[in-house]
Amino acid sequence: MAENGAVSAKKSGGVGKGESLRQFRQEPQYEAVRRGVEDEGFPVSTACRALHVSRAGYYQWRSGEAGIRVTENQRIAGLVGEIHRESPDKGYRRIRDDLDKYYHAPVNDKRALRICRSLGIQSAVKYAPRGCTRSAASPKHLAENILNRRFYADRPNEKWLTDVTEFHYYVGPTMHKLYLSAILDLCDRRIVSFAIRDANDTALVHNTLDQALETNPGVHPMLHSDRGCAYTTQIFHDKLTAAGITQSMSRVGKCTDNGPMEGFWGILKRERYYGRRFTSRAALVCMIREYITYYNFRRLQRGLGVRTPMEVHDCLLAA
């Protein structure tokens, strides 16, 4: 019966998609059956029944005639493991996109999911938000919500979002705070500019804006923010007016009015910050700088047609 099973599989040209992945997942059990039969003298049927695998599948694996697809699954699993070791935060969708883009191994989502499950790989869990930024106690200037959750733009430098987020690092038992300010372009989702300081003050957001205008001369976008104290000063409003920038602000207590910017903070922290303990300011700053470069130039986004923000940016500028 064993020989007949192997011959019939060989005649049919191998095994189907489901069977090939099942054999790939059950390879450790097949190896255990082989050791039990050869070293301990157990009957094949008893060993297979104890390990919940079929005799036909074991004999097919043992004969080496499992088929091309099993071998291909093993090759893809090796690439998946390599991607996971480099970026443990990635789930099966991002792994599938990386396989296609960077490893020239196109597979569909279902196959990538099955292989990830067989290897015990899953994406990092997103932490629940803890609340929204409070409005300034005595704002000098407030703007209407002109953006009004229209989170799209036809061209780069048409609509910018900005915000500040907080990080922690430790020197011994003492916790220190670090603040990151960034501007995100709604068209290509790139980070236009960012600044890092030890204090959440006006200089932080001014540096971010100055850097954005310096690297994108002559632009006059809409700039949307929350109602934090740094954005409601008269000095900041005057800087925007002098640069020909239209100011827009979220409504009170409505974090979703600045959704894509909040989403970027969540992506950054989930992929590189949560679950880690930074023991120096330099290490935390290095992580932030490296991640923003990775996000702009290497991190594929399905919302951008499985491209990076800078690929979309360069394509639109060339057009």
Rank of each mutant, 00 (worst) to 15 (best):
R117T: 03
A105H: 10
R25I: 10
R25H: 07
R69Y: 00
G120I: 04
G57H: 02
R34M: 10
A124T: 15
D98E: 14
I95G: 04
Q74K: 14
E86T: 09
Y102I: 08
A112P: 07
R75E: 11
D98K: 10
R69P: 13
Q29W: 01
V70Y: 07
Y92K: 08
Y59F: 15
I121S: 02
A32P: 04
H104L: 13
H84A: 11
F42L: 15
G57C: 04
A32H: 05
C116G: 02
A50C: 01
R114T: 03
R55K: 08
T46G: 10
L51N: 05
F24C: 12
E82M: 09
A32I: 00
D100S: 13
D98T: 10
I68N: 13
V33P: 05
L99V: 03
G36I: 04
Q74N: 14
P28Y: 00
Q60T: 13
I76E: 00
R96D: 01
D109G: 12
Y92P: 07
E31P: 06
A50Q: 04
D100N: 13
L119G: 06
R25L: 11
E86M: 03
Y58V: 02
V37P: 05
V44A: 02
E38G: 03
E31S: 08
K101L: 06
V70S: 01
R94K: 11
Y58R: 00
S45H: 12
R49T: 14
Q29R: 10
G64Y: 08
Q74H: 09
C116Q: 02
